[in-house]
Simulated assay, not measured.
Amino acid sequence: MEALLDLDAFARVLTDKGYSGYFHTQGAHAGKLRDSISEYLESCRKEADCLPKEHLLLTGYLQWSGADKPSVRCIMLVKYLNGKFSLNAMEVARKDQFGQLLKKSELTNLSVLSAPSAAQAVALVSEEHEQKADRSAKRFKL
């Protein structure tokens, strides 16, 4: 069952899970998770012909080490209904410094409570750097 939470509770749960960076709501309105969503909703209230969308698109970086290093980006599809929010789906993608996709993971049928932590989401698309050392000595026998 999807959990419908008000904005404060929705943002608090995701922030507690490590999603504490900056996000864009609907491709604009940059800020922390709660600030970005509330700024989007406020801009819709100010415009006469703008109604908030039923599904909001939140994008942000979970891992950023500079423009010359690979990064991990998260895209969340959030359902907005009568002032309540729920998380429907999430896409986590790791891209190289040129924007080429290295690895992607799509998570569906999520709720805010069942969503992975930010560290777990990064781990889904991280490259494994574990190299097993060869334990046998390679020597020539005479």
Rank of each mutant, 00 (worst) to 15 (best):
L4E: 09
L5I: 02
L5G: 02
A11E: 01
A11V: 06
R12Y: 04
L14Q: 02
D16G: 11
G18H: 11
Y19K: 07
Y19A: 06
S20E: 15
S20V: 08
G21S: 11
F23M: 06
H24A: 07
T25W: 01
A28T: 06
G31D: 04
K32H: 12
L33V: 10
L33G: 05
R34E: 14
D35Y: 07
D35C: 05
S36L: 12
S38L: 13
S38F: 02
L41M: 08
S43L: 03
R45C: 03
C50D: 05
C50M: 11
L57T: 11
G60F: 06
L62V: 08
L62W: 03
A67T: 04
K69A: 04
P70Y: 03
V72K: 00
I75M: 10
I75S: 10
L77V: 11
L77T: 10
K79W: 13
Y80F: 12
L81C: 12
S86N: 10
N88D: 13
A89C: 07
A93E: 14
R94D: 06
K95Y: 09
L102R: 08
L107E: 04
S111H: 03
S111R: 01
A115Y: 00
S117G: 14
A119T: 09
Q120P: 00
Q120E: 15
L124Q: 08
V125Y: 02
E127I: 14
E130D: 09
Q131E: 13
R135I: 12
R135Y: 15
A137N: 13
F140Y: 08
K141H: 07
L142N: 08
L142D: 08
